[in-house]
Nucleic acid binder design. Sequence first.
DNA 1: ACTTTACGATTGCATGCGCAATCATAGCGC
DNA 2: GCGCTATGATTGCGCATGCAATCGTAAAGT
Lengths: 150, 150
Amino acid sequence: MGLPDDAAEARAQGWRTLAALHARIEDELERALQKRHGLSVSEYGVLDVLARQDEHHLRMNQLSNAVVLSQSATTRLVNRLEDRKLLERYLCPTDRRGIYTEVTKAGRDLLDKAQPTHDAVLTEALRKATEVPELAPLVDALDKLPMPVS
Amino acid sequence: MGLPDDAAEARAQGWRTLAALHARIEDELERALQKRHGLSVSEYGVLDVLARQDEHHLRMNQLSNAVVLSQSATTRLVNRLEDRKLLERYLCPTDRRGIYTEVTKAGRDLLDKAQPTHDAVLTEALRKATEVPELAPLVDALDKLPMPVS
DNA sequence: ACTTTACGATTGCATGCGCAATCATAGCGC
DNA sequence: GCGCTATGATTGCGCATGCAATCGTAAAGT
């Protein structure tokens, strides 16, 4: 029967597997999005998450939480996208500390073109992963994930 | 019944969930390892993968593949660890293009101290993740992963 | 043996990131 | 109304990363 160390080792092993899978797929997405649409994964993530909001806007804070980046990285990420006219900033009317970001028409158009690329690369990468025995269960779990609550 | 778009959207949703989970946990690991042992996640990964080899050494090439980093990043990562005397380089005797890396005693000792931290943080992070409904199945899948073939 | 090609690792360079400090606005206590 | 603290966002700075070019070694073709 397993000592606690065995359980820890099994978890660590699983984590290494997941981390490696994630890194490889993200690499592929990065290259494909960069090459075909001039977007990094982070930039795509911002446009995607903003477009999926009911109100189509988010505060910097919420945005950095959604893309899992630091506040400073988010500021600069938004700067780059704003410079490219893919999104716009505007002050929150009720709290002038807050700043909303919202995708522009151009941003929406670019996202619409990039989304098929993203999905195709992802689908293919996951399909390939399924062929590796120790990755298959992880990929299967992905498909069965429930939708987020909110 | 789902159009292809629905399937793609479901996959993308699952991927966002996985990517976010991965990013948050890696952040936690990074902070804990950095604070308590002066190691980044990448540095920990190198020591860990090297120590787990039967021969205790790996070529730069294999190493960059194992930690999923570019060759140049791996070179510099190994430089940093070598400067800190945590590992050593030596030429492959049969092919002088190849360079082996091997953990030193000091590297082994540091790894032994860092491993409990890594495992504890990981275990706690996964436990917390289990409490979030849409993450639970993913974490469950992790525990059930088969060991890698080699 | 000589050239050509391939492979493994390193270096120059530009860039995106996190941390800590800072600025601006809001809200609270008095 | 006036400080004091809290919150949201930005900026200065150092650093790790990827890409492309390069160097050194090996192997193959002739």
